[in-house]
């Protein structure tokens, strides 16, 4: 019997081949990651951040990146911590050990991540997302929950022309197909 722990199925496996590169905006599925939903009052959250060595962004809708880890502030008392999958368990353990009322929940498998990057990334997203993604309105480091078409996503501008999309796994194929539809005209 194959080791079921190793036999994983990526939420986007159903799509098969993947996306054609180039053409103004590239689309790719990102590898599995550790994800923790951290809920706490800001003071407690800061103590947790200190314990795990990942400073939390103080402004709403902003992300802090430290090495391979990132903290996204999605609500007044809500942060999404993202890191390499291997770091997951220890991160959660440390976070839970901090005294003070807080909620630390492992949501690593709840979502999957996509990345759309390139000079036309904003236009492709603009086919489905009603936010103003101009660099002045949605600068590098901004992140927020929003809608892409009819699916809720977390949209994070990680670089000038690069967006990371976190999406609940069952909505991932829909989001992927939307973005592919939006990319089509930029192959011309």
């Amino acid at each position: 019997m194959a080791d079921p722990a190793a036999a994983r199925v990526h939420p986007l496996a159903v799509l098969g081949a993947g996306s054609m590169p180039g053409a103004g905006a590239t689309l790719r599925a990102l590898p599995p990651a550790c994800r923790i939903s951290l809920r706490a009052d800001p003071q407690v959250a800061a103590a947790i951040a200190a314990a795990i060595g990942l400073p939390l962004p103080e402004a709403m809708c902003r992300a802090n990146v430290l090495g391979a880890r990132a903290a996204l502030r999605l609500g007044p008392d809500e942060w999404l911590l993202i890191g390499p999958e291997a770091a997951g368990e220890s991160l959660a353990r440390v976070a839970m050990a901090v005294p003070g009322p807080a909620s630390v929940v492992d949501v690593s498998h709840r979502s999957t991540a996509l990345e759309i990057a390139g000079p036309r990334a904003v236009a492709v997203l603009g086919a489905f997302c009603a936010l103003d993604l101009d660099a002045a309105a949605f600068p590098v480091g901004m992140c927020t929950r929003t809608l892409l078409g009819k699916a809720e996503i977390v949209l994070w501008r990680s670089a000038a022309e690069c967006f990371r999309i976190e999406v609940w796994r069952s909505f991932a194929p829909y989001v992927w197909n939307c973005l592919e539809e939006g990319r089509l005209e930029f192959f011309i």
């Binding site: 939420p11 078409g149 699916a151 069952s170 829909y174 539809e181 939006g182």
Partner: peptide, 14 residues
């Protein structure tokens, strides 16, 4: 684009 498979998200379990 809201037609066919993009009309509404179709959610599949693992």
């Amino acid at each position: 684009a809201s037609r066919g498979m993009l009309f509404d998200p179709l959610r599949h379990t693992p």
